[in-house]
Design a protein around this nucleic acid. Structure first.
Lengths: 194, 194
DNA sequence: TCTAATATTAAGCAACTGCTCAACATTTGT
DNA sequence: ACAAATGTTGAGCAGTTGCTTAATATTAGA
């Protein structure tokens, strides 16, 4: 790797990193490409040498998010173990303030208004729909009697909503302790009371 | 009430209603006062006759949200019944597309980035902090053994996050069925297994 | 070392932003 | 009927937006 290529990659990641913060804090429309460039210490014009336009920069982040946050299916895994792994992964990521954890919050916000930004973003989010991807695990768990009865998609959405909702609150609040993983799993678990 | 006063109130509410949609869809910075005026069928200048500036319009909505979404404390009510009422209220509001349900989503989004918009908004949200207001109910439920052990604030935040998170997803997705209220309450309920 | 490719800047364009203001229209209380 | 108050418009200002482009600095490969 030449010196030029090295700096190219570094700059590109630096821009992505700063842009991620801005998109989280101000949203898509509230984010200014000029201010991103300013914070990166480069001219506004140079930004468009790395990314053709603002939307492409945003879409790059969504694309990275889709790659990084993909769940590995875990062949033949027990349903409850699968969801336990999901919670564990979130809890391990939530406390840090690195790229991954910010990306997590970002993707949650993207999910809310993906369709208002671009068709490409909407489609990426559709293809990377963790909620529907987890439905088979719910159904399997229901057959085994370890997951409560009810519409599988709704259960899945509620489970991930609780994680996502908590992650968002975590950004806004300081000094908030982390929940136990059982608290999330209680949403899904069959209580065997009847 | 004179004809003039009547129209004044109507226009004011019309602007608030349209603004609510725009703030939800585009966020604070992405919302254009001109476009709100256009949608209301009035000139841009007239908007600032009803609201001194964009921030005041936003703050008006937050203020209304704080009033409308306040929980009535329910003297001496059983803790689980209290949270059950919260869920019931959400479920009754969630399906409609009226002012109240949109306001619900709006207030959730405000909570995420209140501090980046104005100190007044931040303070209103602090004073109207349902999560901390519900902590006594959690503690009482823990004493009675009906609510699981653990940090009360964290439990409270997780409970409301799940509602808020689901509400947000509900806006983005169509054809999503509503959860049973027990699914939310399972987060709090003591499972009495040991 | 020289040329082709790339990195980088600064100026600038057209469109949009929140907001003001002078002018005119309408309604109100008298 | 009249004057004060209020409703309403449209032009416009200063600042910002995303983005382009001509000019220059730097690097890479021959």
């Amino acid at each position: 790797m030449t010196k030029k290529e090295e700096q190219y990659k570094m700059r590109k990641w630096q821009i992505l990193d700063i842009a991620l913060n801005h998109f989280i804090q101000f949203g898509y429309y509230g984010t200014s490409t000029r201010k991103i460039a300013e914070e990166a210490g480069i001219s506004s014009g140079l930004m468009f040498h790395y990314f053709p336009n603002k939307l492409a920069l945003y879409e790059s982040l969504v694309e990275i998010g889709c790659e990084k946050l993909t769940i590995d299916s875990g062949e033949g895994e027990s349903p409850l173990l699968f969801f336990e792994r999901q919670v564990e992964w979130f809890l391990s990521v939530a406390t840090q303030n690195n790229f991954a954890s910010r990306m997590f919050v970002f993707m949650g916000l993207v999910a809310i208004n993906a369709k208002d930004i671009s068709e490409r973003v909407a489609q990426m989010m559709r293809e990377h729909d963790v909620e529907t991807m987890s439905v088979p695990y719910i159904e399997k768990g229901q057959e085994l009697g370890v997951i409560r009865q009810g519409d599988p998609l709704t259960l899945s959405v509620l489970f991930y909503s609780s994680i996502q909702g908590f992650a968002e609150t975590l950004v806004a609040r300081d000094n908030l302790k982390l929940p136990e993983k059982e608290w999330f799993l209680a949403i899904l678990k069959n209580d065997n009371k009847e």
